[in-house]
Amino acid sequence: MEIALSSQLQMQAALEPPRPRHRRNRKSIIPGFGLTMGFTLAWLSLIVLIPLSALFLRAAGLGWSEFLAVGFSPRAMAAYRISFGTALAAAVVNAGFGLLTAWVFVRYEFPDKRLLNAMIDLPFALPTAVAGIALTALYSPNGWVGQFLAPLGIKVAYTPIGITIALIFIGLPFIVRSVEPVLADLSLDVEEAALSLGARPRQVFLRVILPAITPALLTGFALALARGIGEYGSVIFIAGNMPFKSEIAPLLIVTELEQFEYPAATAIATVVLLASFAMLFLINAIQAWSRRKANP
């Protein structure tokens, strides 16, 4: 398999403490710690930490009552509901089809498999605005796909269904790339043992395979969800952007900003950012849990 491990797992594994025969704080003869660490911290502070704290300080400056009034206004609440709801729906669809795709790539052989596998990363490489206009062209009522759905009374473009379609596109690689390496590492022996003891294939999947890949599946799910909540470029073209109906939270931030409603933009952005941090925390918790599960 060309993809060994999700890199977060890789990074965490590499961060494990050194083997005991090394002394913990041995003095390194390698030079450059001051220079590289200094530059790293300076760049991190300038680009990431100071700007993010600016957002939090601005939000804090609003005071509780104003923050709640503009950050949780009815329109903002509707936008959160749409953002979280569509991101959740897309992550659920992707969990199913992403698992299927990962399974097929790991377990079966078929023509052009490697080429198709490379295509899975397309949503990472394709600029979001390009994905957005392409999906809109496909699903608008006279588009390639939309023209077949319109007579059935199914409206995709300019509705929350369209938003979900865009988020399925964006989120697919997260699930596949999380599950694939874990599935590839599963040994077939356990499955064969279960089969030879009389388990049905369905039982083998539910009792043997699924528990083993659950942490990876959850990680991918959380990554896709986090990306979906913050996604902007691929969504705004297909969304229709009607307040209360198809307006996502990141778009509402932009709208407020364009009308110079800085307090509202700041408050909504803070809520979205805190949601991102919560997802990041969740992902780390899942990975800590799966490491404990792997080596108790």
Binding site: V48, P51, L52, A54, L55, R58, T128, A226, I229, G230, E231, Y232, G233, P250, L251, I253, V254, L257, Y262, A265, T266, A269, V272, L273, S276, F277, M279, L280
Partner: peptide, 16 residues
């Protein structure tokens, strides 16, 4: 961290 930040928020912090 920047991977988990919405692009819109990433732009907004510089406007602020």
């Amino acid at each position: 961290l920047p991977f988990s930040i919405s692009p819109v928020v990433a732009g907004l912090v510089y406007v602020l």
